[in-house]
Design a protein around this nucleic acid. Sequence first.
DNA 1: GTCCTCATGTAACGGGTTACATGATTCT
DNA 2: AGAATCATGTAACCCGTTACATGAGGAC
Lengths: 195, 195
Amino acid sequence: MARDSKSKYAILGILTLAPASGYDIKKYTEEIISHFWHESFGNLYTLLRRMLEQGLVSSRTEPQSGKPNRIVYSITEKGRHAFHAWLEQPAAHEILRSELLLKLFFGNQLTPDLLRGHLEAFRTWQLSILEILQAAQKELDSEQENAGLLFRKLTLRRGLIMGEARIRWADECLEALAEENHQNHEVTNVPTAGR
Amino acid sequence: MARDSKSKYAILGILTLAPASGYDIKKYTEEIISHFWHESFGNLYTLLRRMLEQGLVSSRTEPQSGKPNRIVYSITEKGRHAFHAWLEQPAAHEILRSELLLKLFFGNQLTPDLLRGHLEAFRTWQLSILEILQAAQKELDSEQENAGLLFRKLTLRRGLIMGEARIRWADECLEALAEENHQNHEVTNVPTAGR
DNA sequence: GTCCTCATGTAACGGGTTACATGATTCT
DNA sequence: AGAATCATGTAACCCGTTACATGAGGAC
């Protein structure tokens, strides 16, 4: 087994839906599945050529005038097999590595203001993602029943649930910090006040 | 700037709390912050030596009989500066890449049984993590007020909230799939039954 | 006039994982 | 007897990012 590229399977999966160029695949990741996946042009193009050599995909060049040629890839039988074999395999445990959490963990070495700034930036960022997902959901709801619809909805649902949870958490943190700050002020400003 | 190792800052952060060996640091990540961070021995040892060269840490070798020598690292002033500079920097947006979501997205190419299997495996895994976190929370609650306590609690809280959300989501998915399956059976088993 | 979209590519680089080696001691 | 803990290290390797190059056509 060793380790093999997840990108490879993402590409195969997308080619399962329709033939596509590298550019198309990039767009697809950005527009449809950006809430749980991303690809860079860099290894997209490199991978596609490698996969061609391995016979997982076939290619056909579409000449265009004025623009560079489009290289449209299709999944082969071999590619389909590889994809399905992967699909059946249990999903690898996601490795988690959150820079924000790391900073927060060492939060007592940071000024309250900067800390709050980090959390608020995170919050607003999550909020903006949520809005995009909500719009996507509306669109999906108005779409008519089709093959992959349920699964698109379920993955979207994940994005929404997690986004909401992240915002709830950020709010909790901000509250806790505000409270702590408040207490500190009471203590330092009115140290021996009547009790 | 370019890109520099996040591991580096995790290490510096941990050394901020107390001098430690590579082995100690690994243990710390596993026992205390595993819910949002992880390190492998591989680059831990490589990084520590590089950081020594860069003057971010200093080292002292503790001879031991029977066991290999312990190399205990301490953070230097330069290291502290680098760490604080990083702390103040806004946290990079987490890149998301979920293999499970990817499989689910292409779920209509998978048998319902396998699909359910994936989701249930995910669910039970998340549940086991939750239990660990809950135990950790109980421990933290009984600890007396100290410097980093609030922040440990806040990061733990994140793990709990997210874990619960993931489980809720998995349940939703399993329900949705069961329902769909049920409908399909009705249709295929009693195709023209009275209505 | 400048920015965005379309479209493909390459080279550098490095961050991190995996797998291996070594070996005494202590727990089950 | 065997597994786990302690403890450090190295070498392979590759996955993926970033940055660059090229260039036409259309939008604003």
